[in-house]
Design a protein around this nucleic acid. Structure first.
Lengths: 209, 209
DNA sequence: TTTCGGGCCAAACGCGCGTTTGGTCGAAAG
DNA sequence: CTTTCGACCAAACGCGCGTTTGGCCCGAAA
C-alpha cells in the first residue's frame, strides 16, 4: 500500500531501530482525545503539543500536516471497530441473528470507544476528498453489508418486507451512530442497558410480526 | 424578554421606520445556508458578506459578533420546528397516536428544513454556555415531552414496558435527528417514503406485541 | 573518542480570521 | 433646500493559526 506508507510516521513507526521513546501511539491517542473534546478545527496543534509536553513545531517530526493526525486517528478507529463489525456481518447463520449481533456490537463500540468514534462523524468535512476516499469506501462497504443482511433477513421471512433495505440500513446505522451524542455524558447508564435498548428499537422495528 | 431584545438586529428589525432594504431575514437565511454547507467554524464572515453582496465589515451594522448569526439561525430553527412538534406532543388522544404523529412530523421537519436543522447539532460546541442555555432548555423540554409520551404509552399498554422511557426517548430523538446526515444528498427518495421508514423503525420497535 | 542523526527547542513566517474605525452616498424628514 | 441618518465601503488592526527553518542535545554506532 504505497499511498498508505507515504502517510505513515516519517521514521518512528516504520523504523524503531533504536530504543528511542517512539511516542507515535501516544500522539495519535492525544489527537483523538482532543478531536473528540473540541472537534478537529477547534483543536490547535498547540493543544496537541501541550498534551505531549512539547512545542507545536516539534510535532512536524511526526507529521507533515495537521490533517495527517486526523487520517491516522481515523485509521485507528477503523482498525478497532469496523473490521470486527464487518466480520460479524460476513459470518454465517440466520440473517436476523447476525444482524442482532451486529447491532449489539456496533452499539457497544460506539458507547465504549467514544474517543475514536467522535472523529468519524466530522471527518469528511475536514478532509480533502482524495484523502477521505479511503474511509468513505470502507463506510460504504460496511453499509452495503448491513443492507445485504437486511435483504437476506427479508428473504428468510424474519424481517418485514415492506421496507427498502437501503433506507433501512441507513436508518439503522444513523441511529446507532447517534448514540454517541448522548452516551458519554450520561455515564450512569450501563453500556449493557443502552445496547439492550438499541437492539430493541433498532431490530424490533424491522422484525416481521 | 430583555435578554432577547439585546440580541435582536440593532435597528433593522425592531425599527424599520423607513422603507429601506431591511435585509435582516436575507442575512439569517444566508448564514443558515452557509452554516449547513460548511459548518459554523468553516464559514467566514467574508463568505456571508459575499453571499449578501457586501463586504464583511458591513455585516457589523446587523450584528455585534459572528455568534449572533448562529443564535438567530437557531432561533429561526426553533421557531419553525420545535414549537409545532411540542404542540403535537402536548395534544390529546392515545399516546401512541400522538407519538406516531410526532415521529412523522419530526422526520418530515428534518428532511425538509435541512438548512436550519444542520446548525442545531454543532451549536452547543460553538456557543458560550450562557448563550446556549436558551436552546439547551428548549431541547430538554422537548425531550421530556417525548419521554412523558412514551411513559404514558406504556401505562396505556400500547408500548412495551421493558424499556426505560428516558433512554427510549434519547434513542428515538437521536435517530430522528440522524436522518439529517444522509437525506439531503440522496434526494431521489421522497420525503414521504423516508418518514414511513422512520415511523416503522422508530415506533414499531417500541410497540408492545 | 569521534561521528551521526533522531528528537526536540526557539523563533519566525505568511495568512486569514473576527473585529474596529472613519468616511461616503443617497434618500427620507423638516 | 438643507439636514439627518441608516446602509454600506475601504482600509486597517491584532491575533492565533498551520507551517518552516536552523540549531542544540544526547545516546547509540563506529
Amino acid at each position: 500500500m504505497p499511498a498508505s506508507a507515504a502517510l505513515a510516521a516519517p521514521s518512528a513507526s516504520p523504523s524503531p531501530r533504536r530504543g528511542g521513546p517512539d511516542r507515535w501511539p501516544e500522539l495519535v491517542t492525544a489527537a483523538a482525545e482532543l478531536f473528540a473534546e473540541k472537534g478537529y478545527e477547534g483543536t490547535s496543534l498547540r493543544d496537541v503539543a501541550e498534551r505531549m509536553g512539547m512545542l507545536k513545531g516539534s510535532l512536524y517530526h511526526y507529521i507533515n500536516a495537521k490533517s495527517d493526525l486526523l487520517v491516522h486517528v481515523l485509521r485507528e478507529a477503523h482498525e478497532r471497530g469496523v473490521k470486527s463489525l464487518s466480520a460479524i456481518a460476513a459470518g454465517d447463520g440466520p440473517a436476523i441473528e447476525r444482524l442482532e449481533a451486529l447491532v449489539g456490537a456496533h452499539a457497544r463500540y460506539v458507547c465504549t470507544e467514544t474517543v475514536f468514534t467522535a472523529s468519524f462523524l466530522e471527518a469528511h468535512r475536514h478532509l480533502a476528498p482524495a484523502r477521505a476516499q479511503e474511509f468513505v469506501a470502507a463506510e460504504r462497504a460496511y453499509r452495503l453489508a448491513v443492507e445485504g443482511l437486511i435483504a437476506r433477513g427479508q428473504a428468510e421471512g424474519s424481517l418485514r418486507a415492506d421496507l427498502d433495505p437501503k433506507v433501512a440500513a441507513l436508518c439503522l446505522l444513523g441511529f446507532l451512530n447517534s448514540l454517541h451524542d448522548w452516551v458519554s455524558p450520561a455515564r450512569r447508564l450501563s453500556v449493557r442497558r443502552i445496547c439492550d435498548h438499541a437492539i430493541a428499537i433498532g431490530i424490533d422495528g424491522l422484525r416481521s410480526r
